[in-house]
Amino acid sequence: MGEESGTEDKGLAADGTIRREGATERVHAAFAPVVEAARLRVADAFGPGRLHSVYLYGSVPRGTAIPGVSDLDLLVVLHDRPTAADRAAAEDTSGALNSAFAVIEGAGLLLSHVHAVLSEAERHDLGFLVACLCTPLLGEDLATRLPPYRPTSLLARETNGDLALALPRWRALAAGAATEEARLRLGRRVSRRLVRSAFTLVMPRWGGWTSDLHRSAELFARYHPGHPERVAQVRTAAATARTPSPDPAVLTMLVEDLGPWLSAEYTRAHGTKTPRPEG
Rank of each mutant, 00 (worst) to 15 (best):
I104Y: 01
A13I: 03
V190I: 15
A45F: 00
G63R: 01
D257R: 15
V231E: 02
T179E: 10
R171F: 08
R50D: 12
R222E: 07
V190Q: 15
A90M: 04
E3H: 14
P147W: 01
L258D: 04
R230Y: 05
H115M: 09
A177S: 08
G161A: 02
R81H: 04
D212S: 08
A237I: 00
L184R: 00
R41S: 11
V103S: 00
A238M: 04
G63V: 01
M1V: 09
R196I: 04
A164M: 09
S5Y: 15
Y266Q: 07
P48G: 14
R242S: 11
V103G: 01
E229K: 00
R222V: 02
D44L: 07
G226V: 07
A43V: 08
L126R: 01
S59P: 02
G279Y: 00
A37T: 08
D15C: 12
A232F: 03
D125T: 13
R205Q: 15
E158R: 06
Q233H: 06
P61L: 09
T274E: 13
L262V: 02
R242N: 03
A107F: 10
Y57S: 10
T135M: 12
P225M: 02
L78F: 03
D125R: 15
T93H: 02
R26F: 10
S99R: 15
E218H: 15
E105V: 11
R276V: 13
G139S: 08
R150Q: 12
G207S: 06
D9Y: 01
A232N: 02
D162C: 03
R87D: 08
A116Y: 00
T210A: 13
L12A: 04
S5K: 11
A178N: 10
Y57W: 13
T7M: 15
H270G: 10
R39I: 14
R145V: 01
A13M: 08
R123L: 14
L184N: 00
G11F: 13
L194K: 09
A38L: 10
T64M: 06
P204S: 06
R157H: 05
P48L: 11
R196P: 03
L262F: 09
G6Y: 11
D92W: 03
A84W: 15
I66Q: 13
V190T: 14
G68S: 03
P136T: 01
A100L: 10
R39P: 07
P136A: 02
L251G: 12
L154T: 07
P147T: 03
L137V: 13
V234I: 05
V231T: 04
